[in-house]
Write a protein that binds this DNA or RNA. Structure first.
Lengths: 250, 250
DNA sequence: CCGCGCTGAATCCTATAGGAAACTCACCGG
DNA sequence: CCGGTGAGTTTCCTATAGGATTCAGCGCGG
């Protein structure tokens, strides 16, 4: 059975405590296509400048061009692909050092504002942040394990690590009492992911990031706004350094 | 650079001075549909919550559903419409007072950062800002004239005024040496337009806005960063007051 | 040797058609 | 009186087809 009619509202309120976090999500084909293409672009399996044929992608994915077209409109907004009218879509050119610096600046602006709005955290917010950090630690361990094997299959672990990292930051945005900050940060997040992908960094960065996140979490626990801001600033400065360290601006 | 055909570079450079501002823009149908729908939503000709039927809009616009669908994906990202899978699109609910305050806060964060990055302006930037301000003054006069007639046709003038107002602010973003700030501000701008539309304000606000813009321009001319920041802060505080003054949070 | 025009295939863009799901509303049993 | 059920209609979602445009390759004239 595909759908849950859920006509009995009385029972719904009774279960509200259990399924408030899982709104049954019906997905059209275009959402799945979007996820697939996003994964492809973030993994770096396509060269910048390469053309992305609508019909070709539709054939490869086994769907018709219409949902692919919709997904491309969505991707166009992330900045990962560029569109030329009547000429199709192409993978966006790689980020230059200058653009990377701008990206980190813009992100810092949003993140520091989010911290100022989120601290002191509510009890619920603190729980979420702790959970996100714990997941980040686990993902970091998995990355280190997969990299020790070095069998070429480290991408899934890396992807999971990136998601956990972003989830930690996103938690702060979700509790900063300004929904637009979250929206803005999310619109920047694909570019941030791409930046990290282009500058393949080593295991040491993972440890540093985890340590800095831990410092942020400690400061957030105390409820000291300025201390948390300072830890976040330090973390973002680290991110900046590590990102710009090795960037072969093609 | 990837592939700039640019075969006739000699002639291109000869004409560079004349057509650098007018890149011939080929538009597909979906771009025109997007503009039409954006106009419709910003004008307020549709009630919040009203369903926007793909087929119906396609019939009304005299096109097929496919370009309408693409335009809706684009609109969905602006927050002016909401989408439920397998249920279609609806006009987004109106902004509550709280959301308006959040919006002004987020906008202020970006605008103040832009001023800090843009001042002191380059000669070119200063020229652009002056031109934008002059256009804003003209548009303001047109609004006052059209409102004195009060024949129900004030919308075109108001729309033009909004565009000129936003162009002034956008100029600062364009010269702040951070392309992502401009991108973020542009993603917020539809909501800002909608906010102004929902809170129908009078002629007096136009004069105030023009005066505050003039103050910003004067400070920017001197090249004093902090003075310009202060004028922008004052302006945005005025915007906040006027926006929240009359808001019938439905 | 270089620029120019032509031809063909590939691709984009739009229109149309059909299957599937959701909403409306009358009907009926309790 | 109220909740459940079923057909009918509307709408969304996807697939397919056709016209329009771009791009690559080739031959020709200057």
């Amino acid at each position: 059975m595909t759908q849950t009619p859920d006509s009995s509202s009385t029972r719904a309120t009774a279960l509200r405590g259990r399924l408030d976090e899982a709104p049954i999500e019906r997905r059209a084909l275009r959402d799945g296509v979007y996820d697939k293409l996003l994964e492809l672009l973030l993994e770096g399996g396509v060269q910048p400048g390469q053309s992305l044929s609508i019909d070709g992608l539709a054939r490869d994915l086994g769907v018709s061009p219409t949902p692919v077209r919709e997904a491309m409109v969505q991707l166009e907004h992330t900045g990962l692909v560029t569109r030329a009218a009547l000429k199709g879509y192409r993978v966006a050119p790689p980020l230059t050092r200058e653009r990377m610096a701008e990206l980190v600046d813009a992100r810092s602006l949003l993140e520091l504002a989010a911290v100022r709005g989120a601290i002191p955290l509510t009890d619920n917010g603190l729980l979420h942040l702790k959970a996100a950090h714990a997941d980040h630690v686990v993902a970091a361990a998995e990355v280190k394990e997969s990299q020790s094997q070095d069998d070429g299959t480290e991408w899934p672990a890396l992807r999971r690590y990136y998601d956990a990292d972003w989830a930690f930051h996103r938690t702060l945005f979700e509790h900063c009492h300004n929904s637009y900050l979250l929206q803005l940060a999310q619109s920047l997040s694909p570019q941030v992911h791409r930046m990290r992908q282009s500058a393949g960094h080593g295991v040491t960065d993972v440890d540093l990031a985890v340590a800095e996140h831990a410092a942020i979490l400690r400061a957030a626990t105390t409820g000291d706004v300025e201390a948390t801001v300072e830890q976040m600033r330090s973390h973002l400065e680290g991110v900046r350094q590590r990102s710009l360290a090795d960037s072969a601006d093609a």
